[in-house]
Structures are given as structure tokens and as C-alpha cells.
Nucleic acid binder design. Structure first.
Length: 193
DNA sequence: TTTGCGATTCGG
DNA sequence: CGAATCGCAAAG
């Protein structure tokens, strides 16, 4: 499923449920509502210059977590894609739940750091994993340039649930406060996964 | 080794 | 718009 073109998978990942089991046993889960795709031939991708220690997991099999540290204080979570040997990843930018708007905040809130780099995201007995299907309804999905890049801005590889109030960054005209739950329409789609 | 900067966020 | 804050990777 994840061993396919990153951009395709990214779009389909919207609506999947990210689940977290904290060290103390606490469990949390929420739908993914914003993602960005990064591929080998993409200048903004960590794997663009080849394999390095940091992006090693991106070159491995799909379904594993690629967590990196950025700006001296934040962590970002990615889902590795593409067949083993081909780098590719999807940055998880927001979950449909309070405190998880933005890749850095999401990781801070759910206590995700580099110690989770390389964990199997398809293992529901682990600390972090994915469940559920995906959204295919174009009507509830929006697209845009990726956020915070100085290269690769020509690639429209950011996908987000149109009406989720937890999506980060630039939004549609008259951006609203991000404190309400997703609208009924999106909520319904997310529920039928 | 050194250096410049980054897939961010928050405050002024 | 700039500070915070530090690991990474390209350059020296």
C-alpha cells in the first residue's frame, strides 16, 4: 500500500488515523488532515543529495517512521514510502485534534522525537502506528505548495482536508480560528474509513 | 573543523 | 519580522 508513488500515497493518507501509545501507557488517536510529499528527485527532499545518516530510513522499506530534528527545537514526523531502496516520505503536518496543528507542534504534543525514528508504523503494538483507510473524495481535499521551503516550490504536493480547523499554514480566504472540530461533511468522510 | 542554514513556532 | 536553538551536511 505504501510502496507506491509518494504523491499518490500522500493524498490517500489524509483521513488515516495516527495512533500513539505513550511510555506511561496513555493512548491517543486522531485523523491525519494535512500532509506533504517529498521524493528523491525533489530538491527539498532530505534524500535529494543521496543517502546520509539522517535520512537513512527513507531509503528503507515503506511503512516506517522518519523523524528528524529541525530548527534546534522541533521534531517532524514522516511516513516512509516507495519500495525498499527508493527514498520517499510524507510529512505529517496536522491531525484533527487540539494541539496538533503544524508538524512541530504535533510532535511536541504527542511526545514524538528521534527516539521513534525507524519505528514500524504498521505495528499496532508499538509506540506509534497508523490505522484505517483513506479519503478519496476530492471534494473534501485541497492542494497547495508545500510550506516553508526555499526550493521545490513549484511542486504542489501539500494536501489537506478542506474544512478541518486544525490544518496549519495559509488557508482559504478569511481563515478561521482553528479551534472547532471538522465540519460535518469532512467528519463524516473521516468516520467512514 | 568550521560555517550557514533549515520540511518551525511564537512573540513583538 | 526576528529570535530561539542546534544538528546536519557542504565547504574549507
Amino acid at each position: 500500500m505504501l510502496a507506491r508513488p509518494t504523491v499518490t500515497v500522500a493524498r490517500e493518507l489524509l483521513g488515516a488515523t495516527l495512533c500513539r501509545r505513550l511510555p506511561d501507557g496513555t493512548m491517543t488517536a486522531a485523523p491525519i488532515v494535512e500532509v506533504e510529499a517529498y521524493t528523491q528527485d525533489d530538491p527539498a527532499c532530505h534524500a535529494f543529495r543521496g543517502l546520509t545518516e539522517r535520512c537513512r530510513v527513507m531509503f528503507g522499506p515503506p511503512g516506517f517512521a522518519y523523524v528528524y530534528f529541525i530548527y534546534g527545537m522541533y521534531n517532524c514526523l514522516n511516513v516512509v514510502t516507495e519500495p525498499d531502496g527508493v527514498p520517499g516520505a510524507i510529512l505529517i503536518r496536522a491531525l484533527d485534534i487540539e494541539g496538533c496543528t503544524g508538524p512541530g507542534k504535533l510532535c511536541k504534543t504527542w511526545q514524538i522525537d528521534r527516539s521513534l525514528n525507524g519505528v514500524d508504523l504498521l505495528d499496532s503494538t508499538g509506540p506509534l502506528w497508523l490505522e484505517g483507510g483513506h479519503v478519496t473524495d476530492d471534494e473534501v481535499i485541497a492542494t497547495s505548495e508545500r510550506i516553508g521551503l526555499n526550493v521545490g516550490q513549484d511542486r504542489i504536493w501539500r494536501f489537506y482536508a478542506k474544512d478541518s480547523d486544525f490544518v496549519s499554514g495559509p488557508r482559504r480566504l478569511g481563515g478561521r480560528k482553528q479551534t472547532r472540530p471538522a465540519t460535518e461533511k469532512v467528519a463524516k468522510v473521516l468516520k467512514n474509513l
